[in-house]
C-alpha cells in the first residue's frame, strides 16, 4: 500500500489524538453520548487508519495479531469477572459496588466506568482483528 509521504506523515501524527479521543469516549460513556462500544470502534479505527496509510505488514508488526486476540478475550473475561465481583461482594451479578461520587464527574458511575473500559478494549481489539482477517482474504474471494 504505497501511499504518498504526506498521508503517511499526517496519519502518524493523527494517531495518538485519535487514540486519545477513543479513550475520552470510553471514559465519558456515562456522562455524554459514547461509551464502551463507540470508543472501542474509534480506537480500532485508529489502527485501521495506520494500516491503510502504511502497509498492513508494518502495522501487524507493531500491533501484533496475537496480542490483539488475547486482548479481546481478556476484555470479555474482565467483564464477566467484574460481574462475578458483584456476586462475591454480596449483590447481584453486574450490580454496582463502588461508591457513587457526584454526578457529572468521571468517577461517578461506579462500575460503569470499569465495564466501559473492558468493553472498549474488547471492541477495539475485535475491530482490528476483523480488519486483519478481511485484508488477509483480499484476492482470495
Amino acid at each position: 500500500m504505497g501511499s504518498s509521504k504526506i498521508i503517511r506523515t499526517i496519519a502518524q501524527k493523527l494517531f495518538p489524538f485519535i487514540v486519545l479521543f477513543g479513550f475520552y469516549l470510553i471514559s465519558h460513556g456515562h456522562l455524554s453520548p459514547g461509551g464502551g462500544f463507540q470508543g472501542g470502534v474509534v480506537l480500532g479505527t485508529a489502527i485501521i487508519l495506520l494500516a491503510l496509510s502504511h502497509s498492513i505488514e508494518q502495522t501487524e508488526k507493531k500491533f501484533k495479531s496475537r496480542w490483539l486476540n488475547m486482548l479481546e478475550k481478556l476484555g470479555i473475561l474482565t467483564l464477566i469477572f467484574l460481574g462475578f465481583l458483584g456476586i462475591f461482594l454480596g449483590y447481584s451479578f453486574l450490580s454496582n459496588f463502588l461508591p457513587l461520587g457526584n454526578p457529572g464527574q468521571i468517577a461517578s458511575g461506579g462500575l460503569m466506568l470499569l465495564l466501559n473500559i473492558a468493553i472498549g478494549i474488547k471492541v477495539a481489539a475485535g475491530v482490528s482483528v476483523i480488519f486483519y482477517a478481511l485484508v488477509r482474504y483480499r484476492g482470495e474471494i
Binding site: L77, I80, F84, F93
Partner: peptide, 23 residues
C-alpha cells in the same frame, strides 16, 4: 450463592466459552 443460580446457569457456559478460546 444459591440465590444467584439463574445468572450462574447462563454465565457458566459463557465463561467456559471464552476460556475455551484460550486453551
Amino acid at each position: 450463592m444459591v440465590v444467584h443460580i439463574p445468572i450462574l446457569i447462563i454465565i457458566s457456559p459463557l465463561l467456559a466459552a471464552f476460556l475455551v478460546l484460550l486453551t
